[in-house]
Amino acid sequence: MVKCVENQIPLRIVLAKVGLDGHDRGVKVVSRALRDAGFHVIYPGLWQSPEAVVRTVADEDADWLGISLLSGTHMTLVPRIVEMLRAAGLDHVGVLVGGIIPETDVPKLLELGVARVFGPGTPMAEIIDFLRAHGSRTHA
């Protein structure tokens, strides 16, 4: 195996499951793929409140937050989290959304400030390339 991230500072990304959504297979697959791509993935577990997610992002000094939602609550929870991140002075943290998101909702999420929405079947390389291309807005 090739040591692919030599001399590169790993990005820190919080991957979060919010609310009562218990489907964590997707987020675990993404966690593993990002770990193997050299990222530092912080996974706080299921059933996080928006408040807890924002606290984790703040205390962990994360560059990115990935929110996994398969419960249809994205139009309720994502705006709240984005709003709370702003209020906490964390505008520099990039927000990604993954999971089951109807196509009609994607533009709405992007308008809120979400950087990208990844749906089912997204190749891991696409997520990895996106993160590498955008890097860290924190430590630019």
Partner: peptide, 16 residues
């Protein structure tokens, strides 16, 4: 790879 999966928070209290 230099990567890491940091999962200790899963077992720690969530007190936002």
């Amino acid at each position: 790879t230099g990567g890491a999966l940091l999962g200790d928070r899963v077992r720690m209290p969530s007190r936002p």
